[in-house]
């Protein structure tokens, strides 16, 4: 936590800018969106408690909303994600427990654990985003397609970034 006085702030802005300047216009097959910004919440160290996570989630989601002209939508889904994160983390504690001060990342706990950790949370987030935006279930299968495609896209980009940052550390 000592070196990370200013770093999380920079990361916050990096995530927001990357999301609204690059990833926003990157939509595959009309259905696959990349909401990489949620990994800011997912990759915060374990010491963060629910309250702090939710407040960060709210601010981050709100910033994204300003650029997406969708006031409240991303804040809503990201607060949900932030709320669920710690419960899910304690439900899937790996053998030997978690290390203190280490972010729950791919390099720390391995690919299998990382997938188990991220997929349900990403799904919850995307599910809320798309169904709240559609304002109901009248386009259920098309919206579901969007959810699944976006889940794949977000996860793929996140995994690539995880592997890239892992190599740098070694």
């Amino acid at each position: 936590m000592t070196r990370s006085g200013i770093l999380p702030f920079l990361a916050f802005f990096a995530y927001v800018l990357a999301q609204v300047l690059i990833l926003k216009s990157l939509v595959l097959f009309n259905t696959a969106f990349c909401f990489l910004y949620i990994f800011f919440i997912l990759l915060l160290p374990l010491e963060f408690n629910n309250l702090v996570l939710m407040l960060i989630g709210f601010v981050l989601g709100f910033s994204i909303d300003i650029f997406y002209d969708s006031l409240g939508l991303h804040a809503l889904s990201l607060v949900l994600l932030a709320y669920l994160r710690n419960y899910w983390l304690s439900a899937i504690t790996p053998q030997g427990g978690y290390d203190v001060g280490v972010p729950p990342s791919l390099s720390a706990y391995g690919l299998q654990w990382f997938l188990v950790y991220t997929i349900p949370l990403i799904f919850a987030h995307h599910f809320v985003v798309f169904f709240v935006e559609a304002a109901g279930f009248h386009l259920f299968w098309y919206t579901m397609l969007k959810v699944m495609m976006s889940l794949l896209f977000t996860l793929t980009v996140a995994l690539i970034l995880q592997y890239l940052s892992m190599d740098r550390r070694r």
């Binding site: 629910n50 309250l51 709210f58 006031l71 409240g72």
Partner: peptide, 19 residues
């Protein structure tokens, strides 16, 4: 934590409807 969660979500829902 749960009450903060509820509060924030209600705020967000209100914003979504307002928007």
């Amino acid at each position: 934590a749960f009450f903060t969660f509820l509060l924030l979500e209600l705020l967000c829902v209100w914003m979504v409807i307002e928007n």
